[in-house]
Design a protein around this nucleic acid. Structure first.
Lengths: 192, 192
DNA sequence: ATACATTTTGAACAATGTTCATTTTCAACC
DNA sequence: GGTTGAAAATGAACATTGTTCAAAATGTAT
């Protein structure tokens, strides 16, 4: 059932998700969807929850030996995930809830955890700066990467080919690290 | 009528925009809304069009004497606009059309024009690089700024206070320019 | 004043999220 | 095995909202 919903969102975007379609595909009644998830938002949030989990899993799997490589790896993992699951990520970041119900605590926490994954390598690279300051820098860098990727993949606008985006992202990370006073002269794998 | 629609979106988000509300507020029939805008998307797009125009106007108004100051000004103008009209900007970037109708050409063009405003000062700062390369750098920088601002202002997540965001943005621009090999040692107005 | 064009109207329709009384399922107990 | 009561599943009915379109209202030219 979640599987079906995710399939529909991934294939045609959140807007095309319909309760009736999910019920039919799952071979159960409409009411059952409501018994399971409470309401439509509940279903969407369940899919979104799994999306963050999948994303976080990818990010956590990035090797952590060399902090610079790790940052590149995180950015690239994010890009790969975003390119493969553009609609799922959009659902996560763009879905607004009914009324003004609060954003679920656990999803928020997981997103923050994903954000925080850039924190550790940044601390290693900037041992002299205050932790709070580094936390801000890390969040900023994550946000910047997010912006580059999400606008870059936006089909409505002129979408950049993922391969090209990958190069740009790597360049961005390098440039930004250089700006922070971190030397990155040795080219890494797969860089042009 | 557009005014009403914009008001509703700005106040409560795109989701709460209803044809009937607009018709009632404009003191006309539902049908008239359709005669005027074709369909619901037409109304939304009209509001979005004016949003890009307003944003572009703000960005164009940024002084262009010193390129570094100009870049800071552009980022700050974007932030100010985003903070003042968060829901309108979201409507512009997040609204998906029915089916797969194409994104209107003119809006796309205006967004690109806004993107391109970072191009000129970047060319001035990097006279030795190839124009296409600078265009990519400019778009990347714009996207990064967009990401920092849109995630930063996201109330669902932990929103950063605009004042704090302003500082971070300025720091980001400085860092990035430094990474590009551009010296920025003189503090600018209003910087902490 | 008449005839034709244009605009406006809002009732009816279609799509879709939501509810809830009813039915079905199923386990526990005698 | 039959009875019973809780739990789960059902889908018809409802509420909201985008959309259509025949009819009415308005405007204009002759």
């Amino acid at each position: 059932m979640i599987e079906t919903a995710r399939g529909i969102i991934a294939a045609n975007g959140l807007r095309s998700l319909k309760v009736r379609d999910v019920a039919e595909a799952a071979d159960c009644s409409i009411g059952s969807v409501y018994n399971e998830f409470g309401d439509f938002d509940g279903l969407i949030l369940t899919v979104n929850r799994e999306t963050v989990q999948a994303l976080t899993a990818r990010l956590v799997a990035v090797p952590a030996e060399d902090p610079v490589r790790q940052l590149h790896g995180l950015a690239e993992a994010y890009l790969t995930f975003a390119a493969d699951h553009a609609n799922l990520l959009r659902s996560l970041f763009e879905h607004r809830m009914e009324d003004d119900r609060p954003f679920p605590e656990d999803i928020l926490k997981m997103v923050m955890q994903a954000f925080a994954l850039m924190h550790e390598p940044m601390v290693r690279l900037l041992p002299d700066r205050k932790p709070e300051e580094v936390a801000l820098l890390a969040r900023m860098m994550f946000s910047a990467v997010h912006g580059i990727i999400s606008l870059g993949l936006e089909e409505r606008m002129v979408a950049v080919p993922p391969e090209k985006l990958r190069q740009q992202l790597a360049q961005f990370v390098d440039t930004h690290l250089a700006g922070l006073g971190i030397a990155v002269d040795k080219p890494r794998d797969g860089e042009v």
